[in-house]
């Protein structure tokens, strides 16, 4: 099986990420208003930021796509938002979140595509983002109950959106047949071909 990324894989990954950037753009203002209250309601949709990574991985199934997707989503965010979120700081976030996902996928040797893996990747991305938040947002200096609320809200949001939603969206996308043209051929495909010949 070919594991190296081709230009097609990269372009498709970036395009997936950019679509989610476009969707975030509509959600962005909502996100801003929610975050003003400081009660971390906004954290429930934070998972939207990681979604591109799991979707891209579940579609393309190759190492490195999750990281590229996160970086591209951050970059797309910069073009669309015009640096509203600090432009390049998003790249740093994209990087740690992408690494968080990649580590999870690598632990399963990039061979497992179950719902469970998507959820674990969501947790990985959350840990990555929290790590950077300690430096960027001093979240370790929040009152304990508030910090707990933030972590729990972000985790739940991430698992539901980045894990479950992403998984079912890819499932639905498979029905459109579009995943067939880009996914690397698996052993099953060869087998079904041989059966057809017979």
């Amino acid at each position: 099986m070919k594991k190296k990324l081709t230009l097609t894989d990269i372009l498709v990954t970036i395009v997936i990420a950019l679509i989610f950037s476009v969707i975030y753009k509509v959600w962005g203002p909502l996100y801003n208003i929610l975050s003003v209250f400081g009660l971390h309601v906004d954290q429930l949709i934070y998972g939207m930021w990681f979604m591109a990574a799991t979707i891209a991985f579940l579609i393309i199934r190759k190492p490195g796509v999750a990281l590229i997707a996160e970086l591209a989503a951050a970059q797309g965010g910069e073009f669309l938002f015009g640096g509203q979120w600090g432009g390049i700081s998003l790249l740093l976030y994209g990087f740690v979140q992408g690494i968080g996902c990649e580590v999870v996928f690598a632990l399963f040797k990039y061979k497992s595509y179950h719902l469970f893996i998507a959820c674990l990747a969501a947790i990985g991305a959350t840990i990555g983002s929290l790590f950077l938040d300690v430096f960027y947002g001093y979240i370790d200096q929040l009152a304990l109950w508030n910090l707990t609320l933030l972590i729990v809200a972000r985790l739940i949001g991430a698992i539901v959106i980045t894990g479950v939603f992403a998984f079912y969206i890819v499932k639905a996308l498979e029905k459109t047949g579009v995943t067939k043209i880009i996914r690397p051929l698996s052993a099953d495909d060869y087998q079904s071909l041989e059966e057809e010949i017979r």
Binding site: L7, L11, V12, V15, F20, I23, I161, V178
Partner: peptide, 29 residues
């Protein structure tokens, strides 16, 4: 509703754009 919204928007957009990206990439290669 959140899922519905994501679904209604992301699936058609993804399907269209992935096809377009695929065609573009083949030409670029």
């Amino acid at each position: 509703g959140v899922y519905q919204r994501i679904q209604y928007f992301s699936i058609p957009l993804l399907a269209q754009s992935i096809r377009r990206a695929h065609r573009t990439a083949i030409a670029m290669e």
